[in-house]
């Protein structure tokens, strides 16, 4: 967590203070430093979720199931951030909060997939069953994500012509790019630290009756 805090601090400083204003979009482009990393992470987390779900399904590894389960809310919140900041960015740039842009739409569908996963998880009493059912759903989703992405892109470009392409210029200036990369590193480390915290409490609930939990708690309370 410390690492991600440091990275966040550096990335934010670089992004908000050091980087020059964009010649077209002015200072509003600074939203990019949270918008783009969270959009990247939203996909990355879904992949982690599906892969660890698959591992749990095949080898019956409990820890993989827990990782998948703990990742879902974090991924959903990254998706949410990407959508909301995208809308806020869109308001001054495009004039409206929402355009039926291909990327925005597929991100929205991704949010639906996350929410479906979470809803399915919470519908079961038995955690093992929930984890394995969720894993199947995540795998189905991962097969579908590229299909959804390309279908949406196609739909949009054929339907109303290309809207705003964000990175039209071939390369983004280095002083803008470096904070962006640092921010995405920060997002990644943030994700892992939050995911591990979630896993820890999941495991404690999971193994509430195990002996090691008893010992752990005894030593903990004794030391206080």
């Amino acid at each position: 967590m410390l690492l991600s805090l440091v990275l966040f601090a550096v990335g934010l400083y670089g992004g908000l203070v050091m980087a020059p204003a964009d010649y077209q979009q002015g200072d509003s482009f600074r939203i990019i430093y949270i918008h783009v990393p969270s959009a990247w992470m939203s996909l990355f987390v879904y992949m982690v979720m599906a892969i660890s779900g698959g591992i749990g399904l095949i080898w019956h590894m409990k820890i993989a199931e827990i990782v998948a389960r703990s990742s879902a809310p974090i991924g959903a919140s990254f998706t949410f951030i990407a959508l909301v900041t995208g809308a806020i960015w869109g308001k001054p740039m495009w004039g409206t909060w929402w355009v039926w842009d291909a990327r925005l739409t597929s991100e929205l569908i991704l949010l639906f997939l996350y929410l479906g996963f979470i809803a399915l998880q919470s519908a079961f009493e038995d955690r093992r069953v929930a984890a394995r059912a969720g894993a199947i759903l995540a795998l189905v989703g991962i097969v579908n994500i590229p299909i959804i992405h390309y279908s949406v892109e196609w739909w949009n470009t054929l339907h109303q012509g290309p809207t705003v392409t964000k990175f039209d210029s071939p390369s983004i200036h280095l002083s803008m790019l470096i904070p962006l990369l640092i921010m995405s590193l920060a997002f990644t480390s943030y994700y892992f630290s939050v995911m591990l915290t979630r896993c820890r409490s999941e495991i404690l609930e999971y193994e509430a009756n195990a002996n090691w939990v008893k010992e752990l708690l005894t030593t903990k309370t004794a030391s206080i």
């Binding site: 002015g26 200072d27 509003s28 918008h35 900041t85 820890r200």
Partner: peptide, 27 residues
């Protein structure tokens, strides 16, 4: 932020709230 402060800061505020909730809730 060159006139865009409203947008930039509200985006960052929402981001910060979500991130903090995400961090505190499991703890």
């Amino acid at each position: 932020m060159g006139g865009y402060g409203k947008f930039v800061w509200s985006a960052y505020a929402i981001w910060l709230i979500v991130m903090v909730i995400n961090y505190v809730q499991p703890m």
